[in-house]
Amino acid sequence: MQSHNEQRLKEVFSRVFSVPVETINDDVKYRETKNFTWDSIMHMSLIAEIENEFGIMLETDDVIDMSSFLKAKEIVAKYVND
């Protein structure tokens, strides 16, 4: 079952990339997206939005490691409890 935080994270991705929330899944990967652009510039906007949503500040290593939606879920889970 999808966790509450996963849903919030999907909504963040959806907002940042201006795509329907249904299009966000574990296969969404950095620089490999089809209908929208997840490049290095968008990446920093995504990070800012994730940090705002969850009230956290990510480690630089985690910013670098966040290469997919799947990875983003794992990283956010380190900072916030479901």
């Binding site: 920093m44 906007s45 990070i47 800012a48 940090e51 705002n52 500040m57 630089t60 910013v63």
Partner: peptide, 10 residues
């Protein structure tokens, strides 16, 4: 700059 720009991005 790295840390500040992340705060400013918000």
């Amino acid at each position: 700059m790295q840390i500040a720009s992340r705060l400013m991005q918000r």
